[in-house]
């Protein structure tokens, strides 16, 4: 069976990929310019050192459509509790500008394939954590610039909900998705 022409493939990212990614751009908006800087600079490597997994998403022709990352972080419940919770989070993801809104067929839309992959990988992480009784993550969170309406709408379509009353550095809001049982 020939694969669907819009099928994306997940390729684990390594430092050696940076050379061929020069020119990768997600656009010129305030919330887009740093995305390629993250992938092409030292930030992605720093993040991988602390356990983040990073994939490039490519077409069958090996064109890089975008990338995504998935990590976990240990957050403290506020005092007096103070105990730790493992949170799955998406440090960064991006789709090259020319692939925004592509392909027109929503079922094969690249953005949805990529988010579907990140969610499935998080669910797997949660399942392994549950089976090992190691307290795997129950939430997947991401951070998005509060003025990036298009991204917020997309994340909502994927099921993410805005956490009300939370603003992180540089006008970022946080969204959450349940990935536990």
């Amino acid at each position: 069976m020939t694969p669907h022409p819009y099928q994306l493939y997940a390729v684990p990212f390594t430092e050696a990929d940076q050379a061929r990614l020069v020119g990768f751009s997600c656009g010129d908006a305030l919330w887009s310019r740093h995305v390629s800087e993250w992938l092409l600079g030292s930030d992605v490597l720093d993040s991988m050192k602390r356990g983040t997994r990073v994939w490039l998403f490519e077409t069958a022709e090996k064109e890089v459509v975008g990338f995504g990352s998935l990590g976990t972080s240990r957050w403290n419940w506020p005092p007096p509790d103070g105990s730790k919770a493992t949170i799955a989070l998406i440090p960064m993801l991006g789709i090259a500008e020319r692939f925004h809104g592509q392909p027109p067929d929503p079922e094969w839309r690249y953005s949805r394939q990529i988010m579907g992959h990140l969610i499935a990988e998080t669910q797997e992480l949660a399942r392994v954590g549950r089976e090992a009784k190691a307290g795997g993550p129950e939430w997947l969170v991401l951070m998005v610039h509060r003025d990036n309406a298009r991204a917020i709408q997309f994340y909502e379509q994927c099921g993410f909900e805005l956490i009300p009353g939370v603003e992180r550095r540089n006008n970022h809001v946080v969204m959450k998705l349940w990935i536990g049982e």
């Binding site: 992959h117 669910q123 379509q157 099921g159 909900e161």
Partner: peptide
Amino acid sequence: NRPKVRAKSLP
């Protein structure tokens, strides 16, 4: 709030 997209690892 559960996923509204098909959660599926890409090949």
